[in-house]
Amino acid sequence: MQAALTMPFVVPRAPELPDATWAAYALTTLTAVPLVWRRSAPVAVYFAVVAAGALYRFSVDGPGQPLPYPGLVAVYTVAALSPPRQRLGIAALTFVLVFPSVATNSGAAKELLFSLFVFGAAYVFGRLTDTRQAYVRAVEDRAAQSERANRIEAEQAAARERARIAREMHDILSHAVSLMVVQAEAGPLAVRTAPERAEAMFDGISETGRDAMAQLRRMLGVLRDDAALQGRSPREPQPGPAALPLLVERVRASGLDVVYETAGEPRPLPGDTGTTAYRVVQEALTNVVRHADATVALVRLGYRPDLLEITVTDDGRGPERSADDVLGHGLIGVRERAAAHGGTARTGPRPDDRGFELVVTLPIPSVGSGAEVGS
C-alpha cells in the first residue's frame, strides 16, 4: 500500500506544477497507517482513512493519487468483516461522499462513474470474501462434526464388539466348564458303581473340552489380522440350530435328560439369528445344569411365519429358584442378544410351579444367502 502511495511522489511532475513536499507525503502516509488495525476495528479505520484523505485534499497541494487506495481497502474490509447494519450504513455513506469528492476534483461525469464503480466493486469483493470464508467455515465445521461422529461411531462399534466377544466367551467357557465340573464330580461315584457310565462321562469331559477349544480357536481366528495365520486356519461358521442336537447330546452326557423338539416348519435362518438361537439354548442348559438341580429339561424351537420362539423348561427348583439366583452375566447376555435382534427374553417359574422356564422370541428377517437351516 505504501509503495503505491509513494509512486506519484517519485515520478517527475510537470514544470508548471509545484514540487511535492514532505508534508504532503506525510499526510499521504497518514491515510495508510490506520489500515494496520482494519481487521480489529474496520468501521473506525474507515472513518480515520476518510478524515486523513479529507485533510490531505484540503490542506496541501500534493500530486494526488490515480486511485483512492486506502479508501478502497477500508470499504472492502467493512464489507467483509462488519455486521449488516454497519456495512450497509458505510456503503450508503461512501455513495454520498463520492459526489462532493469528485466535485472538488475534476467534477467530470467520467470521474464520478469511475469512482462509484471502483467503490462498488470494493464492496462487492468484500461481500464475496465474507461469503467464501463463511462457506469454508461451514465445510470445516461439517468435516469436524463428521470426524467426531465417525470417531463416536467407531468407539460405539468397538464397545458393541467387545460386548459381543464377552458374551461369546462367557457362553462357550461357562457351558463347557459347567458340564465338565458336573461330570467330573459324578465321575468318582460312577467309577465305583457303574464303570461303563464313568467311561462315558470322561469321554464327555474330553469331547466338551475339545469342542470349547475349537470354538475358542474360531473366535480368536476372527480377531487375528495375520493373513498367513488365517490362511493356515480357515474360519468356520458360528454354530446355529443345526448344531443343537449335538449340544443336547453333550448335556445328556452330564446326567441331565434333555428333550429337544421343534414345532412349525423349520426353515433357514440368517447366520446371526441362528447363532443367537444356539447361544440362548446353550446358556439356558448351562444354567439348568448349574442351578436347577433338575432331572429333565425340554428345549423347544417354535417356528412361526415371522418369529422364532425358543422355550427351555426344567423340572428343577421351580418357585424356590428365583431369577436372581441365576441373573449373572449369562442371562444378561441372553437378554442383550434377544434385544439386539428386536426380540424379547422372559424368565421365571413355570405356570404349574413345577420348574423354571426361559422363553425367548426372535424376529426372523428375510432369509439371506448365508442362512442356516434350523434342525
Rank of each mutant, 00 (worst) to 15 (best):
H291S: 05
H291D: 02
A292W: 02
A292F: 03
A292R: 04
A292Y: 00
D293L: 08
D293I: 00
D293A: 13
D293M: 07
A294H: 05
A294M: 07
A294K: 04
A294Q: 03
A294S: 05
A294L: 07
T295I: 05
T295N: 10
T295Q: 15
V296S: 07
V296Y: 05
A297C: 06
A297V: 05
L298Q: 14
V299E: 07
V299N: 03
V299Y: 00
R300C: 10
R300K: 13
R300L: 12
L301D: 07
L301E: 10
G302A: 14
G302Y: 02
Y303R: 11
Y303S: 11
R304I: 11
R304A: 14
R304H: 13
R304G: 14
P305W: 06
P305A: 11
D306R: 11
L308P: 02
L308Q: 00
E309I: 15
E309N: 04
I310S: 04
I310C: 04
I310Q: 03
I310P: 02
T311N: 07
T311H: 03
T311M: 10
V312E: 04
T313K: 03
T313Q: 10
T313Y: 00
T313V: 09
T313W: 04
D315W: 03
D315G: 01
D315V: 05
G316F: 00
G316W: 03
R317H: 11
G318I: 10
G318Y: 06
G318R: 08
G318H: 07
P319I: 12
P319F: 09
P319T: 13
P319S: 09
E320V: 09
E320T: 11
E320P: 01
R321F: 12
S322D: 15
A323P: 08
A323M: 12
D325F: 09
D325S: 14
D325G: 08
V326P: 01
V326A: 05
V326M: 04
V326D: 00
V326T: 12
L327Q: 12
G328P: 05
H329L: 15
H329G: 11
H329Q: 13
H329P: 09
